[in-house]
Amino acid sequence: MAIVETRDVQKLFGDVRAVDGVNLATNEGEFLVLLGPSGCGKTTLLRMIAGLEQPSSGDIIIGGQVVTALPPRARKIAMVFQSYALYPHMTVGKNIAFPLKAQGTPREEQQKRVQRSASMLGIGHLLHRKPRELSGGERQRVALARALVREPAVFLLDEPLSNLDAKLRTSARDELQQFQRQVATTTIYVTHDQVEAMGLGHRIAVMDSGRVRQLGTPQEVYHDPADTFVATFLGSPPMNLIEKPEYSLGFRPENFLPREVYAKDGHLFALPCRVTRLEYLGSDRLVYGVTEGKLEGHRVISKLPSNISVFMQPGERHEFALPEKELKFFDPRTGLRAAPRAL
């Protein structure tokens, strides 16, 4: 186990700042997720931690040792690639044994450890197959077993679930989390999928344009976004944002409900809307509308769980409201979080 730290890490590709001064530190045994849209620098950051990419400036520290100049093999890390990168000419058993063989582990010890990590991931029966004979889920487990077998100080995972179909992804997510909690090895996980990030991470680093916008627990980044980027990147649908010259006002669609749903005496902020469109999603209904009253003319979305059966139809005006404490204020120039103010 080890703590991974990046100090002012920068990576330039020509004029492009792919990673722009990132300072991060994991906790011991933590599952840290790097989350952001494609091109935000999260994979580049991971590759620099792995040693596959050299930072333009700054340092990478693993387990208290500066490893910036060390090659990947000397960093005591294991990585699972998006493509899994299984060696196609080797059987599953040989794939898993590969890191041990490269280290010169004795043969019996290799056998023992391959068996152990294969059985931990439930692929003991596949050891004699070639990667091309495996399903996507099986390949992913082989890649994990290969990462696990050498007992690394850090796991680096680059979107390992993105090649699985939706159903398999849910179960794989569950297994992955159990697996990480079981081995308790510091893990850095890159994804653009916020559901994965929220579900898996102890903490999430939300990245954009090469910078970390916010580092916090899933609850913190969701309920207390540091800026408008984090606020609108997380959540499906994203946070409603009403931009005024003096302030920006944000609130989550699931808090923005018909007035009658809330108790009469709560501290509510009322906002009438004209409904423009309805979307029925099974477990939820999305109500698209345009605000009226003093904050007139902004597009907003309300997310109604299926147990709220208030009748609504396009074209009609409806009273909506949300608890005052759910209002988030942002500075309209910087986009950063601002102190609450009276409306």
């Binding site: 596959l52 990947p72 093999r73 990585m79 690639f81 998006q82 990168a85 060696y87 490269a102």
Partner: peptide, 15 residues
């Protein structure tokens, strides 16, 4: 040949 394969090998302990 996918680059990932070489990179995986380099992480797995090879030059």
């Amino acid at each position: 040949i996918p680059k990932d394969l070489e990179e995986a090998a380099m992480i797995d302990g090879l030059s």
